[in-house]
């Protein structure tokens, strides 16, 4: 697309009918194509509202939204071809009796020609690591597998933008890693907006938006957010265990237990003597 901005919001404001407070208040931001952007903040902060405004499920009270050059409020169907949304609970999104039918569902609705559909479905299933699962029934899959089927269904449509709304909230550690590694593979090739409560999922993000009380409380990088205790506290964010230990010990940011163990060993007196 010629438009250099993938997602743009100007003074976006929204309130739910009957609610006393604004769900989103004067939010402005621009996201260039290919950027991987995390969205964090407390429950009720406006994260899911933003996702719903970006694909036209909700319409702003005032302000402007553009996604891939289109306004989701006036052209929702065009926008939804370009924007795929992955929600929290995969059970709510899977519709067909077999994995391959489910992945083909979006393409069928778009009227994609059969031979091409077959090819795209095969490709999408392989790209989430589920080759061989084509004839499996979705209800027999684990949570992580179901969520990857849902992701394949989005990828088959070849969206320019992916909106991930807490895609790992219902999964165990193994399922979470399965989905996250597939999502990380997409970084760079598409614009990704990833809503999550787990800061460790955003170690590799290009950028992090913090939404609190409907306002954009910060627009920053993961490293800066993780090292700003004040900003974390104000927005009810909790550092993952490893970076928290590192911070409490006065060591620089560490992401894995091994990294932290090595940093402690280097810094410790007996570590120095051993060298």
């Amino acid at each position: 697309m010629a438009d250099p901005t993938s997602i743009s919001c100007e003074h976006l404001t929204f309130s739910y009918p009957g609610a006393a407070e604004l769900a989103l208040s004067d939010v402005s931001l621009k996201i260039p194509p290919g950027q991987y952007v995390g969205v964090v903040g407390p429950n009720g902060g406006g994260k899911s509202t933003l996702v719903r405004l970006l694909n036209g499920l909700l319409t702003a009270d005032s302000g402007r939204v553009q996604v891939a050059g289109l306004d989701p409020a006036t052209e929702p169907f065009e926008v939804r071809r370009l924007v795929g949304v992955l929600f929290q609970n995969p059970d709510n999104g899977l519709v067909a009796p077999f994995v391959e039918d489910d992945v083909a569902f979006g393409l069928e609705n778009l009227g994609v020609e059969r031979a091409e559909m077959r090819e795209r479905v095969r490709e999408a299933i392989a790209s989430v690591g589920l080759a061989g699962y084509e004839r499996r029934e979705p209800h027999t899959l684990s949570g992580g597998e179901k969520q990857r089927v849902a992701l394949a269904g989005l990828l088959a449509v070849r969206p320019e933008v992916l909106l991930l709304d807490e895609p790992t909230a219902m999964l165990d550690a193994a399922g979470r890693e399965e989905v996250l590694s597939r999502v990380r593979d997409l970084a760079g090739s598409r614009t990704v907006l990833h809503v999550t409560h787990h800061l460790q999922e955003l170690f590799d993000a290009d950028r992090v938006l913090v939404l609190n009380g409907g306002r954009l409380a910060a627009d920053t990088t993961p490293l800066e957010l993780f090292s700003d205790a004040e900003l974390l506290r104000e927005n009810r964010l909790v550092l993952p265990t490893v970076p928290k230990l590192a911070a409490d010990l006065g060591l620089p940011f560490c992401r894995t237990p091994e990294e932290l163990a090595a940093a402690v060993a280097r810094r410790s007196r007996d570590g120095v003597q051993a060298r």
Binding site: T241, V242, P257, A265
Partner: peptide, 12 residues
């Protein structure tokens, strides 16, 4: 994570 840090460090 706490145990994994200590286990990685604790060998020595």
């Amino acid at each position: 994570a706490t145990v994994r840090v200590a286990a990685a460090l604790g060998v020595s």
